[in-house]
Design a protein around this nucleic acid. Structure first.
Lengths: 217, 217
DNA sequence: ATTAAGATAGTAATCAGTCACTATCCTATC
DNA sequence: GATAGGATAGTGACTGATTACTATCTTAAT
């Protein structure tokens, strides 16, 4: 591999200086992108610098620590995920439709940002900094709580089985996403994520749906 | 931290030498144990040596490469997993009961060897050596195939819905396990793995079960 | 006495983080 | 409007720690 100079990446303007805020945002984006390829721990600050035509030392003008970059990345992901979930829930007419919309919106978000599951579901970050672990816990429990709340609503309106354990059903919901992402990682992009998702979701739906009103979507 | 000498671990006999085969087995076991704590990449050969009262260099008398240790670990896990699945399937009277027995046997296997999901579901190993990726693919596709086969059987005998997509249902089955393991990792051991599993499985079961014979277990 | 397991002491590579300095941008002053 | 000068993004060379892996010597076990 040739030595990486700032001019290697033609798409990056030759020597444009950027404001601190803009650069921080850019570093976080690049970190998430790179994490998609080979996992969190494989991304070095040198990799990030190369990807944006900077020297490695410059990274540390914007972040005191590499872990701080991951913290910012998770915060960025959380905001994006929350917004995706909210808009998907908003355009739904009943709780089950909300679940379905959230599910596919979430997977679409993942396929646009493949680094997301690598970072949030990463074992590595969970064991490192306490703040990292705490933030990841927050993101997942928040998401799970949202799903569980919708399930409670579904129970109350008779769409879901009355004896359903919402928390367990939310765990299965997240597991369904993890399972699909695993398949996706294993077999490359040959199996499209949304295609596989379309066939898995009905099974989940039959697991939580009430048996009285089958004719409902 | 004091310098680690072979005599640090009191439970290890002071200077007993072991045969090569016995040591290889021990290294693999120690590697799996350590991977449970902090993920695959966090385990160094020095860690392994410390855990068994050896010097780091001694590891490389038994394995030419660290990746070779992970290969051996995955092979060991595969054998254990296959045996667990086989015996669980054997003592079952119908396909759905087989799925249930496999599910709980698998989770019990995981709680006995917490390193298993960390290694097999690890993103990191998937991107490293081609042989590692290939072996992991083999393990997962083999497992998924086994589940799918049982589901086909369940369809044929009328236990499962006739329109069920076995491959997708198998993906959801694996996802269910991943979801439970994630919860387990997030909240430590406060949430017992089997307890949570008992509440999630019925939901999955209702997703695949045929609606005609509800009275069947 | 032979042999193989282990000890000791390395090597080269890689990593996050530091630091003195430079290039570029912004703006107050003329 | 031109420009001097302060502020700061970025450079390049560095450090110390850690890593997988190796060469050579020691010693336990048969």
């Amino acid at each position: 591999m040739p030595k990486n100079t700032p001019t290697d990446n033609a798409d990056i303007p030759r020597k444009r200086r950027k404001g601190a805020e803009e650069r921080q945002e850019e570093i976080v984006q690049v970190a998430i992108e790179l994490a998609a390829k080979s996992g969190v721990d494989a991304v070095t600050t040198q990799d990030m610098a190369n990807a944006m035509g900077l020297t490695q030392g410059a990274i540390f003008r914007h972040f005191p620590t590499k872990d701080e970059i991951w913290l910012a990345a998770i915060r960025w992901i959380r905001i994006g995920l929350l917004s995706v979930v909210e808009t998907a829930a908003a355009r739904s007419e009943n709780p089950l439709e909300a679940l379905e919309n959230i599910f596919f919106a979430h997977l679409s978000f993942i396929s646009r940002h493949p680094g997301f599951p690598r970072i949030v579901f990463s074992d590595q970050l969970l064991r490192r900094d306490t703040r990292l672990k705490q933030l990841i816990q927050e993101v997942i429990t928040g998401y799970e709580g949202k799903i569980a709340a919708i399930l409670t609503q579904a129970k109350a309106t008779g769409f879901a089985r009355p004896d359903l354990d919402e928390s367990s059903a939310a765990t299965l919901f997240i597991g369904m996403i993890q399972g699909l992402v695993l398949q996706w990682n294993l077999f490359g992009s040959q199996r499209a994520l949304p295609e596989a998702a379309k066939k898995v979701f009905p099974i989940y739906l039959d697991g939580i749906r009430s048996r009285n009103n089958e004719e409902q979507v």
